[in-house]
Design a protein around this nucleic acid. Structure first.
Length: 749
DNA sequence: GGTAAGAGGCTTTTT
DNA sequence: GCCTCTTACC
């Protein structure tokens, strides 16, 4: 009892000790939220007479679930195994696997990931004669996903008048659901939507689950969607023992249907709920919290609150400006080296960026300097083509009616079954309103298919038939996986290639086989393995102890590091261009607010040191774009910032030594002010954004400078009018003559 | 029916 | 810039 409540402040203790009924914990960043949840689970079991199997703890990501499971186990030992800790999606899948028959889902259910989903949608739309350039499948998908996240099927999906996209999306939605059912498949959204409709329609199942689960806890509640909220509400309908933990300031998944308003809804739906606020931060220094608060306080819709800490002192926030993204990466690499020499360990450092694409340049710089790093990226391994191909064979072993999977591998590796034969197969399947597999099973029904093609189809049928047989008898998972790789001819076709990337693919397949072998020895079934592959991230996705972690700001949620870098602190990089209304420069307030919260999440990951970097220009989608500093930089009070300019070796080299050649280097807003410093990157000057010269944003764009344009070639700047990427420049091109060009289309030479 | 080169799209963020 | 899909040709 005593140990359980040790190291808890009075608020935290209150939350842990809450016995029954609804509980809302408003937990600020770094306020010991995970500790409270895990202690509460342990307390309920040890002191509250609750059986471990009666508790469900739902989190958002696998990472969070894994961490929570571990923390609970540390305190409870093996009895913790019975506590059900999982993500929303796996929870849904478990329920569907056990009770899905009640709504007509087959036992051999397979889960389509978003790639499978998009492929299926595209195929359906093309079949329906939809012009996919006018109506992008991605746009349709996002409408369907959004409807699903609101708990709406095709018939309930709301479409406003004159919403053409919505109209079409709804009609595709209908046929898409039909296709999923015919294939015995569900997508991610269905894992929640179908579970909720199962529980709504089937009282028996709901009562069974209600009896089994007496306590439900939800982490990251601000990121739950309406359908997720509906699910946990249903599960605790009788007991009312629903505890949710969240922070409206950290809501960063609005784009995929998460609704912060669930927090408000909770207080409305459970007027007797106990509300506990955790506002003491145990993670960061005061400086970091103040900087984070400066960003988040401008968010218009938030609940007013402010974290406090007793950790004063610490480093000021470092703000570093680079010439371009490569320069920025060098800068970060050198800062990492400096921090290492100060005694920080690599495992306690992380670099965050807005989009995954930004990791590449950074990786190059770290590799060059031999700094061990690790890119934390959701599920890259399972997204590799070769892995997805073998997965398709494995899913067919379980459920050969999955048309998407048939289409994926029917000619992979090449076995001479071309598009025409495939088209005829599909037509025959549609005609008999069955799956392609059922057509293959009765080849007599195939018209217009020549004898050679029939032979090849029979060979393919053999392959899948054998796999299916193996999966229904007691063959081990490992052996089925091996058969899928070898029996399909996949491995031998790769071996024949001899290209270096074929070798890499083979290595990845080897990796998959060892995963399967390990799972086999744990007695895991093929279905279990497939479920995990569909829902789980990479196995080696964890933050490694001796490596610098690289990840998106979204992936950073829930983590903490001593030293944090946020790169790309520029307008239209972060906040991302998407936060601005299409085309124009007007702002979408809600989207911008979400960027703000994302920034807040990023800053509050740092325990000791926060370093922010920006670049004057960035290479984006094959184009060099001029960037101006992020508004977020300007919002941080200057007394919290170590404003830094620098003269870097790489910059000097690339720009012909002009920049570092003298005290009044070109581009400095402070001519004559390049103080010497032991750290070449940190030249501290008294530099305030509010006093910067008007052309600071594009300060290297000045009359006389040389620039490059994609089509016009190189030229000399004559006139500059305006700021940043939008500045209008008159350029005298060497070949193309005098033109007016926007700065963002120019590369600075 | 298969291949290679060219065109076009793409990038938020994750289960 | 990179990847996927289409097109033209074998």
């Amino acid at each position: 009892m005593t140990a359980l409540l040790e190291e808890l402040n009075s608020r935290q203790r209150e939350a842990v000790l809450h016995r029954a009924g609804p509980l809302l914990i408003l937990a600020g960043a770094g306020s010991g939220k995970t500790r409270v949840i895990t202690r509460r689970v342990v307390w309920l079991i040890r002191e509250g007479g609750v059986r471990p199997s009666e508790i469900l703890a739902v989190t958002f990501t696998n990472k969070a679930a894994g961490e929570m499971r571990e923390r609970i186990q540390e305190q409870l030992g093996s009895s913790s195994d019975a506590v059900w800790v999982s993500t929303f999606h796996s929870t849904g899948l478990s329920i569907l696997r056990e009770h899905g028959a009640a709504i007509g889902l087959p036992r051999s259910l397979v889960v389509y990931d978003d790639g499978d989903q998009l492929a299926l949608l595209t195929r359906l739309m093309k079949d329906q004669g939809v012009d996919t350039t006018l109506l992008p499948p991605r746009a349709v998908r996002s409408r369907i996903d959004f409807a699903k996240s609101c708990g709406l099927g095709p018939d309930e999906m709301e479409v406003a008048d004159h919403d053409l996209l919505g109209e079409r999306a709804r009609s595709v939605y209908r046929s898409y659901q039909a296709a999923l059912r015919a294939s015995g498949a569900v997508d991610f959204g269905d894992l929640l939507l179908e579970t909720v409709s199962l529980l709504r329609r089937n009282e028996e199942v709901l009562e069974l689950l209600e009896r089994r689960l007496r306590y439900v806890m939800v982490d990251e509640f601000q990121d739950t969607s309406p359908v997720q909220y509906a699910l946990v509400r249903l599960l605790t309908r009788k007991s009312g023992n629903l505890a949710v933990v969240g922070d409206d300031d950290q809501s960063i998944y609005g784009w995929r249907g998460a609704d912060v308003r669930n927090i408000l809804a909770f207080e409305r739906d459970y007027p007797n709920a106990k509300v506990v606020r955790l506002e003491q931060n145990y993670r960061s220094t005061r400086v970091i919290l103040d900087a984070a608060h400066a960003i988040i306080r401008r968010s218009p819709t938030r609940k007013e609150k402010r974290l406090f800490t007793d950790q004063s002192g610490g480093d000021l926030v470092r703000v570093l400006n680079a010439v371009d993204e490569r320069d920025e990466a060098q800068l970060v690499a050198r800062q990492i080296e400096a921090a290492l020499s100060e005694g920080y360990s690599r495992g306690e450092m992380a670099v965050f960026y807005r989009v995954n694409a930004m990791s590449r340049v950074l990786e190059d710089a770290l590799r060059e300097r031999r700094i061990p790093y690790h890119v934390v990226r959701g599920r890259s391994f399972y997204e590799r083509a070769e892995i997805k191909d073998i997965t398709a064979y494995l899913r067919l072993a379980v459920n050969p009616h999955s048309d998407s999977d048939i289409l994926r591998v029917i000619n992979t590796p090449r076995r001479g079954i071309g598009t025409r034969t495939v088209e005829r197969l599909r037509k025959a399947a549609a005609g008999s309103s069955g799956s392609i597999w059922s057509v293959l099973a009765s080849p007599g029904s195939l018209k217009e298919v020549g004898p050679a093609a029939v032979r090849r189809l029979a060979a393919f049928r053999e392959i899948i038939g054998k796999l299916h047989e193996m999966s229904t008898s007691s063959v081990s998972t490992k052996d089925i996986v091996r058969e899928a790789m070898i029996g399909s001819g996949y491995v031998s076709s790769l071996e024949a290639e001899e290209a270096p990337e074929a070798l890499e693919r083979l290595e990845n397949l080897h990796e998959l086989l060892s995963v399967a072998t390990e799972r086999s020895s744990n007695g895991e079934s093929l279905v279990q393995m497939l479920d995990d592959m569909a829902l789980a991230g990479d196995a080696d996705d964890d933050v490694e102890p001796e490596q610098v972690a690289l990840m998106t700001l979204h992936a950073a949620k829930g983590l903490e590091f001593d030293v944090v870098f946020v790169i790309g602190m520029e307008e239209r990089t972060f906040p991302h261009a998407r936060a601005f209304a299409a085309g124009g420069w007007s702002e979408d307030e809600e989207a911008l607010s979400e960027e703000r919260r994302l920034c807040y999440v990023g800053f509050t990951r740092a325990r000791r040191r926060l370093t922010l970097t920006s670049a004057d220009s960035r290479w984006i989608m094959g184009e060099r774009q001029v960037r101006s500093p992020s508004r977020f930089l300007e919002e941080i009070p200057s007394e919290l910032i170590e404003r830094s300019l620098r003269v870097s070796g790489s910059t000097a080299k690339r720009y012909g030594g002009r920049i570092s050649s003298g005290p009044s280097w070109e581009g400095s807003p402070f001519p004559g002010e390049v103080p010497s410093n032991s750290d070449p990157d940190l030249v501290v000057v008294d530099y305030d954004f509010d006093q910067r010269p008007p052309d600071e944003c594009g300060r290297r764009l000045r009359p006389g400078g040389r620039v490059r344009h994609r089509t016009f070639g190189d030229g000399k700047i004559h006139e500059v009018d305006g700021l940043g990427g939008n500045a209008r420049l008159v350029i005298c091109f060497d070949d193309a003559g005098i033109k007016k060009v926007l700065a963002r289309y120019l590369e600075i030479l």
